[in-house]
Amino acid sequence: MLQIRNLHAKVADSEILRGIGLTVKAGEVHAIMGPNGSGKSTLAHVLSGRENYQVTAGEVTFQGRDLLQMIPEERAREGIFLAFQYPVEIPGVSTTYFLKAALNAVRKHRDLPELDAMDFLALIKEKMKVVEMDQGLLNRPINEGFSGGEKKRNEIFQMAVLDPKLAILDETDSGLDIDALRIVANGVNALRSAERAMIVITHYQRLLGYIVPDYVHVLFDGRIVKSGDKRLALELEEKGYAWIEDEQEKAQRAGA
């Protein structure tokens, strides 16, 4: 579904991604872990087309098409969804209005009929259950005055409504208490399917206890330096990132 080859990207003149390679197939869940500032969010934003990140080398194909040629809304309509690490507050635009506009843009692109108000409400009602979302939140402007947990839930709710092919969850677990984490994780698990792939960015094994990944990758200094299965996450939890750092240094010295 997604192929990333030798991806380099910079932001504000410093190179953040320095040769990323990753292949994600339908139905798979990939976890990406790594220390602060290693480039996880940058990768997520580059995949969704954020303009201030400049791709300097490499290629990305999504369902056989060149992803990097697409503008952000086109990527979304093609089925890429990013759950933001820091969801944006947008005063004055109600969540329901926004979601209906988004959903119909996506449906139109997929040659599906647009939903009218009734059908849309029915769909919303159904998807709200996925993350135990409160109706009151939906009538409010997007994320405005939402708590951290409510914002994260709103992201997963939007994902449920938009039904993407590839979901990228950027630290959806950060800042959640144990109940909220369980709700969000259950929501994500409910959306796992053989057709859908997920990239789950996280610092903590804690989330991966609920959402069991098929693969775990360690992103370090703009590169994927280690890949494994779920046991790698446990190992990281136990030892921290220091040993990865050591290994990197050793490898570099050996190479030099």
């Binding site: 969704s48 087309g49 503008i71 952000p72 809304e73 990527r75 979304a76 309509r77 969804f81 990013l82 933001f84 969801p87 944006v88 947008i90 005063p91 004055g92 635009v93 926004f98 979601l99 506009a101 988004a102 959903l103 843009a105 996506v106 692109h109 402007p141 997007i142 939007q158 938009l162």
Partner: peptide
């Protein structure tokens, strides 16, 4: 944020201006 959900750039701008 709006574009990442599939909303076109012009619509996104209008929506925010309206808001």
């Amino acid at each position: 944020y709006l574009r990442s959900r599939g909303i076109g750039v012009e619509t996104a701008r209008s929506l925010l201006t309206y808001a």
